[in-house]
Nucleic acid binder design. Structure first.
Lengths: 206, 206
DNA sequence: CCCTGCCTTGACCGGTTGGTAAAATCGACG
DNA sequence: CGTCGATTTTACCAACCGGTCAAGGCAGGG
């Protein structure tokens, strides 16, 4: 942190943190346009002008949030080890991704909202960093398939499927809870069991 | 249509249609709060007061859209036939759902946006109609499992997985295209191949 | 005590937004 | 043609929103 030599006082560090936490809460619920600086300020426990003393504007808060979160968000995929046992690696990735949906649903919704809008701010990262990372991991998976360790599947669509099925439990939580009703308590454990079996049996070489 | 005996002139029918089409375009891109009545009016080719002559307000347009689309949206699931061959029925549902993501991405995004916001308008439908429909189809799948036609899986999470993987190609289209790059042209065909195999092999009794 | 730099606030501003009032226009029918 | 209801437009408003400004509080160093 603190790159570019930006010195920060203790109060600045604290208040920027409070603002980002509040902004995550508000942006993830209402989207970029739906969120108001007033509500973020209120959630952060300070006045609007005070908030704007720490951030130049609404978009800068949003951008800071997105960029800060992106690294965390891609980490689980980075951890996929080319030298590991294929099915184990994929199951591990699936599990880590589902845990993130469970533990960081607001972050997941923030990204989802950005995607729905056409990702005006994230587009360069999607076409650059993300695309390269996926390409790299797709190569690994293709290697596993070539070595007959995995059934032949399109690696990128496999990754999409893992993203989709796990993030669903964060982004569509309302729907999931509504459908499951009172059985919704153990939904993440049930989902983990289901998804691990689906992908294991779906990918195993028979 | 025209329930409740609401008489409509030809112009009313036409203009309400134009407004709903324009509203789908705008709401699906910008969300409920991000959309403005002005932009909807412009997209519909009429002035704002004129638009408000046909609909009482922004929310009524949005609500009308959601309710009208819901039936269409649930139809593919309704078509799942308890007397059909299990794997064939599930593959068929998967295929129909993916075709909807391809042919009606705006509708998919509209629902996704509503879910992200916590589904304030749709909640009753989710807890009522949708929940009952899923419960009914889950029973059918449980029957198939009992008759050893299908590997034992949690039926509701299976349905979630189908929703998630198919809608992903509409809601996260920006991401999918960014990651696939120039290979993105045949993404729906590739997705169909991948998903049919994944679910077939993942659900088949071995 | 005062100066100084960080932090906070209330008052305010221009632009946008959802929505309204009322007058003007249209068009089907006698 | 003339009438009357349906439709459209012009002008407008109050609320809200992102952001600014100038004045003040506050703590530490002299």
């Amino acid at each position: 942190m603190n790159e570019g030599g930006k010195r920060r006082t203790r109060i600045q560090t604290e208040n920027r943190g409070k603002i980002l936490e509040a902004a995550l809460e508000v942006f993830s619920r209402d989207g970029f346009r739906g969120a108001t600086v007033d509500r973020i300020a209120e959630a952060a426990g300070m006045s609007k002008p005070n908030l704007l003393y720490y951030f130049a504007g609404k978009e800068e808060i949003y951008r800071t949030l997105l960029e800060g979160l992106l690294e965390t968000w891609l980490d689980p995929l980075r951890e996929m080890d080319p030298d590991g046992e294929p099915l184990r690696e994929i199951r591990g990735y699936l599990r880590r991704k589902l845990e993130m949906a469970r533990d960081y649903p607001r972050e997941s919704r923030l990204f989802a909202g950005e995607m729905l809008r056409g990702a005006p701010l994230l587009e360069p990262v999607l076409k650059g960093e993300l695309r390269e990372l996926v390409e790299e991991k797709a190569m690994i998976i293709r290697g596993w398939i070539k070595n007959k360790k995995l059934a032949p599947h399109d690696p990128k669509h496999l990754i999409f499927a893992i993203w989709a099925t796990t993030q669903h439990y964060a982004d569509f939580d309302t729907q999931v809870r509504a459908v499951l009703g009172d059985d919704g308590e153990g939904r993440f454990e049930d989902a983990a069991r289901f998804l691990e079996r689906l992908f294991s049996d779906g990918l195993r070489r028979t």
